[in-house]
């Protein structure tokens, strides 16, 4: 307990329990099948609960899992069983809100897949190797959205929403044109 608070994984699953984006930071699940088994058990045990207004919490195999749902997306953050539940919950909230900002309120699976690069960058900005980097959704989204800013233009001249708008525009267009 003298160590830094740490996150074991962050999962974003769809309404059938399939992966949208996942990131594991711990060796507890060494193989892909172990990871999938964990995701499946977490998904089936939480799917009937109502975690839409407030984040819910459950324990699995000596881990704390805190989760929240929006439309057909299920957000999960896992920590060790002696971890401070509220810290894990803050990480989940940061992830959830940042995704909301990045997808401009349209939080569903289709939108998430279309902006998968933003989601992956978002995961990258929240936790590094299990250590919490940032939990403030606005800061996370801001860092991710600085994405499409030309390297010449100073960051401060663009507001977050502008940046977001350009980012999304570029991406939807390019993906649709494939």
């Amino acid at each position: 307990m003298e160590s830094c608070p740490s996150v074991k994984n962050i999962l974003l699953l769809d309404s059938e329990g399939c992966r949208v984006a996942v990131k594991y930071y711990s060796d507890d699940w060494p193989t892909n099948s172990a990871k999938e088994a964990f995701e499946k058990s977490v998904f089936t045990k939480t799917q009937k609960t109502n975690a839409r207004t407030e984040a819910e919490i459950a324990m699995f195999e000596n881990n704390i899992v805190i989760y929240k749902f929006a439309q057909d997306l299920h957000f999960f953050v896992t920590g060790g069983d002696d971890e401070n539940e509220l810290i894990i919950s803050t990480v989940l909230q940061g992830f959830f809100d940042a995704v909301g900002l990045l997808l401009r309120g349209n939080v569903d699976k289709k939108e998430a897949l279309e902006n998968l690069d933003l989601i992956l960058l978002c995961l990258d900005e929240i936790v590094d190797g299990g250590i919490i980097l940032e939990t403030d959704a606005n800061v996370i989204a801001g860092k991710v959205a600085s994405h499409s800013v030309d390297s010449g233009a100073p960051l401060s001249e663009q507001t977050i929403s502008q940046a977001l708008a350009t980012a999304r525009e570029h991406l939807t267009r390019s993906l649709l044109n494939v």
Binding site: R19, A21, V22, N32, K35, E36, L116, D117, L120, H170, S174, L175, V178
Partner: peptide, 20 residues
């Protein structure tokens, strides 16, 4: 750059789905 980003996203998607 845009097209390269897309391809990287696809690669990352594959890795994320458990492809090796």
């Amino acid at each position: 750059p845009r097209r390269c980003s897309q391809v990287i996203t696809k690669l990352l998607y594959l890795l994320n789905q458990g492809d090796t």
